[in-house]
Design a protein around this nucleic acid. Structure first.
Lengths: 124, 124
DNA sequence: ACGACATTCTACCATATGGTTGAATATTTG
DNA sequence: CAAATATTCAACCATATGGTAGAATGTCGT
């Protein structure tokens, strides 16, 4: 599904920025306003506001307007999805590729440390 | 450490692109040349070459030049690191925030179902 | 040596991103 | 009502990104 991929794009894109990762960490304790968030970053309020919007569009943060303040809350669901994709491949690679790597490295060692033996198909 | 964050930026940035995610999937089976990879994408060879470079700089792919061909191999280690960051937060949020969300939603229901809206001044 | 092949490098383009400032909007407070 | 506050919107800038095309580099086959 395309929508699925789109969401992954947004989520990984969102957490690819260290400022936004830090923001997510700050939201772990509960709700926080945009202004409170902004206090802790060396960029302008507007810069922070933009980052928040990115997190929001990735579905990682939910905004609730109460009076003049915007309260932000973490939404873990998209992270779960993102983890699922990563885990699916990572596990497979961890088990399968480590073995493959060892195998290939050994093969390399064999062909470089000892001379090529006659009658052997040289793997190029 | 900053280097750590830098690596996470690169890895998440790399997998934020669906073309590159697909490439990683294709590399699961073992080594593949850039050209073989390129055959399966609707973009130019050069475009593919650029994507490969991004994956390489994120440490997700290792390149080995054999003759005129460049063979690519997956490197799972950075994925492991990326998963670790995600998992650390996700687990925490999963347990802690789901409870918080339920609590807050209930609170909301309680206050809205009784028609207790705060002074309403219509927009504009 | 020569041409075909696999690939990168350089240059270019359009759009996205992260940042800024200033104006606008809505809300609380005096 | 007016001022202060919390925030977004709009415009702008510099740089990054994803894409293209063409030239350059290195290797293979004859």
């Amino acid at each position: 599904m395309r929508a699925d991929a789109q969401r992954l794009n947004r989520v990984y894109g969102a957490i690819a920025d260290p400022t936004r990762r830090t923001m997510l960490g700050m939201l772990a304790g509960g709700e926080v306003t945009v202004g409170t968030l902004a206090e802790r970053f060396p960029i302008s309020f507007n810069g922070v506001s933009k980052h928040v919007k990115v997190l929001e569009q990735a579905g990682l943060v939910r905004r609730k307007v109460r009076g003049r303040e915007h309260w932000l809350r973490l939404r873990p669901a998209p992270l779960r999805e993102a983890t699922r994709w990563l885990d699916h491949y990572r596990e497979f690679w961890d088990t399968r590729l480590d073995a493959l790597e060892n195998f290939l490295v050994q093969q390399e060692e064999r062909s470089t440390s000892k001379g090529r033996r006659p009658g052997r198909r040289s793997g190029r």
